[in-house]
């Protein structure tokens, strides 16, 4: 049964979706907290979009329960959809209408009072930096502008939860950067954001927590660092570039250091169970070496992802 935890905006227990004999989503448990950005990651066909559609009541649930803001999307889809903004994968708008007309239609469906509609549209369009093209037909919009218009719809809706399906796919780096900024903006306003993606480095930069989907199950869930510890092994990896000293010999005696290796470039890689940068730097400098670089190697989600699926294949073989 879902916890009655007030901090969770979405909570799923044993959520199941069966298509014929195939389990598209296989008994997943998921909690999304108020005000966080949560990433659903995984290869295509892993069940991310199906999970999202079940949360919105747009597709039937085969088993288990899901609650969105305390409402059951199967029984009370209107209540859920009134409070949740959704940006589908490759969102479409009515091309023959202007952005303002498109948003007006949504506003009417949301039963926003007529007098407020224009104000809220302009406010939202300014937020996504499209105010100057609000009266242009959507047919003239680029893909990035359409995605931003989708965000504007969510802003106009004053949604408490925003669900974004592959929001950055097909965007150029600049448009991606702008869109991620807008997603951070949603978070700053207290909106919980659930986004699905396979663009890992982009997701890593905005997500507080992620869930790694694989064949309809959640394989891993947690912060990026937690995931890295689980998959890549525990520890803080460091990169040290220093000369005139045998780094390995000096550093090994530092408290917490577990492993020191030399990579092909001649740099040293250190794995420790805590942040040991200060101690390492002190040892090298007092030992008479010249420290050129000391970098905290952030675990990359890409690495986690790749490693995880490699392991999967190995186990399967």
């Amino acid at each position: 049964m879902p916890d009655s935890n007030i901090d969770n905006v979405i909570s799923a227990r044993g959520l199941l979706k069966v298509y014929g004999a195939q389990r598209a989503v296989d008994s997943i448990d998921l909690d999304i907290r108020r005000g966080e950005i949560f990433g659903l990651l995984g290869p295509n066909g892993a069940g991310k979009t199906t999970t999202i559609l079940m949360m919105l009541g747009l597709t039937d649930i085969s088993g288990g329960t899901v609650e969105v803001l305390g409402f059951n999307p199967v029984r009370e889809p209107l209540e859920v959809k009134r409070r949740v903004g959704y940006l589908p994968d490759a969102v479409g708008f009515y091309d023959h209408l202007t952005a303002r007309e498109n948003l007006t239609y949504t506003a009417r469906l949301l039963a926003i009072p007529r007098r407020q509609i224009d104000g809220r549209i302009m406010e939202a369009m300014e937020r996504v930096k499209l105010a100057d093209v609000v009266d242009k037909r959507v047919a003239t919009y680029s893909r990035g502008m359409r995605q931003r218009l989708g965000i504007a719809e969510i802003v106009m809706k004053k949604a408490e939860v925003a669900i974004l399906d592959e929001p950055t796919s097909g965007l150029d780096p600049h448009a991606t950067f702008e869109l991620l900024e807008m997603i951070r903006g949603l978070k700053r306003e207290g909106v919980a954001v659930l986004l699905s993606s396979h663009l890992l480095d982009r997701v890593q930069s905005v997500c507080d927590r992620v869930a790694l989907f694989n064949k309809g199950r959640i394989a891993l869930m947690g912060t990026v660092v937690e995931l890295a510890n689980q998959v890549l092994g525990a520890g803080h990896p460091l990169l040290v570039e220093a000369s005139q000293i045998d780094v390995a010999a000096v550093v090994r005696s530092v408290d917490g250091v577990q492993k020191v290796t030399r990579d092909s470039d001649g740099n040293w890689r250190i794995v420790a169970d805590r942040d040991v940068r200060a101690a390492v730097a002190q040892r090298i400098v007092t030992g008479g070496g010249s420290l050129v670089r000391l970098a905290d190697l952030q675990p990359s989600l890409e690495e986690v992802y790749t490693r995880y699926f490699q392991e999967e294949v190995r186990h399967a073989a």
């Binding site: 889809p77 209540e79 903004g85 959704y86 940006l87 091309d95 949504t106 719809e153």
Partner: peptide, 14 residues
């Protein structure tokens, strides 16, 4: 085909 259906149906409407 215009991919507007899922967006419209995600508004409070049956």
């Amino acid at each position: 085909n215009r991919r507007t259906l899922s967006r419209v149906l995600s508004q409070p409407i049956y």
